[in-house]
């Protein structure tokens, strides 16, 4: 590893507690560009909280998060976030094209309308995910796989440097899952940074360059082939009480 390397995301001693209940404790991470990271851990391990901290939606109790080695809030627009399916109001009056176009919002002042370049990008993003024929459909009429592709298209359209995805493969057909992974790998080659919350342990080896295993604290972190071992998995998924016992 080079000295003085610049990291897209640097997490320094992050701790978060809700109502005096600890959710994340003392997390240190340096996320590198051009790699796909899998974020692994049981329910309640703090994966979504970690995302929320990166997105600046939660103030951490201690520690800080640097984006591109700075704390400028404008850097947040260099992140594209693909939400969990149940976070989305699928009844919302918007068609597929409206959602993908949202990716262009950070580049626009209120009086600027979408121009030829924006429209071309929107179309290209939809083409990449095979959803052009769905462009006029209300988002609630789509299947699970199609819905996920719409949000990934929005992320592409945003041309962000960091992609955060919260369980993108839940309720998605095998074809779409493969398609999404292919796109992520292409993005990584282009130097983007990709973080994916993931549950299916069987596919971890194939999907991710690195894994981050958390259960309130950082259990293991590094190259998937090295770190994703049976021992680390069982440490990650063992109940939190046993973890505490070990520490005292």
């Amino acid at each position: 590893m080079k000295l003085n390397q610049s990291y897209p995301i640097r997490i320094d001693g992050l701790s978060v507690a809700y109502n005096h209940k600890r959710v994340l404790t003392n997390i240190y991470l340096k996320i590198e560009a051009g790699l796909i990271y899998g974020l692994i851990g049981p329910n309640g391990a703090g994966k979504s909280t970690l995302f929320k901290c990166i997105l600046n939606q939660i103030e951490p109790n201690t520690g800080e998060i640097l984006l591109f080695e700075g704390t400028d809030k404008k850097s947040l627009t260099r992140i594209a976030y693909v939400p969990q399916k149940d976070e989305v109001d699928w009844q919302f009056p918007a068609i597929v094209e409206d959602i993908v176009t949202m990716g262009r919002f950070p580049y626009k002042k209120w009086y600027q309308s979408m121009n030829v370049f924006d429209n071309k990008l929107v179309l290209e993003s939809m083409e990449q995910l095979d959803i052009v024929h769905l462009r006029n459909k209300q988002i609630g009429e789509l299947s699970g796989g199609q819905q996920q592709r719409v949000f990934l298209a929005r992320a592409l359209c945003q041309q962000a440097d960091i992609l955060l995805m919260d369980e993108p493969f839940v309720g998605v057909d095998a074809k779409t899952e493969e398609k999404i992974i292919q796109i992520l790998k292409t993005l990584a080659l282009q130097g983007k940074t990709i973080l994916v919350v993931h549950h299916d342990l069987d596919s971890v080896q194939n999907y991710f360059d690195r894994v981050i295993m958390v259960n309130q604290r950082l259990i293991a972190y590094g190259d998937t082939s090295v770190v994703f071992t049976k021992e680390n998995i069982s440490r990650t998924y063992s109940s939190q009480s046993t973890l505490l016992q070990k520490n005292y």
């Binding site: 809030k73 404008k74 976030y81």
Partner: peptide
């Protein structure tokens, strides 16, 4: 929760 990343 998308607002931040879209500069809003």
């Amino acid at each position: 929760n998308l607002a931040n990343t879209l500069g809003i």
